[in-house]
Amino acid sequence: MISIVLFWVLAVAALVFGFLVFRLDSMAQVTFALLASFLAVAGLVLLLGLSYLGVVIVLMMVIEMVIMAVFMIMYMMNPAGLMPMSMFHNTKGSAVIAGVVFVALVAGILLVDWPTRQGEAAPDLTFALGEALMGGQMLTMMTLGVTLFATIVATVVLSTNRGRYDRFGDDLDRAVADDPAGGGVG
């Protein structure tokens, strides 16, 4: 009973906050509306018994959205939404496409004869996940790891405009890096 109420509350919250992301004017509020949508989904994941993944979603998404807020405010023209402005293009076409996709998905969901439940959940799901990632799915894990590492390198290269010649001089012989602010190693 409680879980049914929780489901409806969280599901509606996820949808409403998701909708607000494209309705609110203030970029700060938009970011935290998206965060609220994620938190509602994390609640649903917890409701399904995936405690570790649910909590990890909370952890990851809070960090991610706080960082996102920083970037939002850096780059958007009107971060506080003090002067409402439209940031849409081709609204009608997008709405039609999204609507058609939604209807197609709903049709699929309602028409397909879904398989029935098979098997029992492992007693310790977190342990089972860890065992899968370190065992049968090791390749997935390693791919993720390498991809993350590649992302770190690529994002740093893309986003900075200072190379080691800027920091250590043309002959790379400066003892301490010449940075505008401390905190960079060297």
Partner: peptide, 16 residues
Amino acid sequence: DVGVVWFNAMEVLAWA
């Protein structure tokens, strides 16, 4: 069963 992760997630809420 995921107590310490939960604890950490709640601390991170303080950032936001």
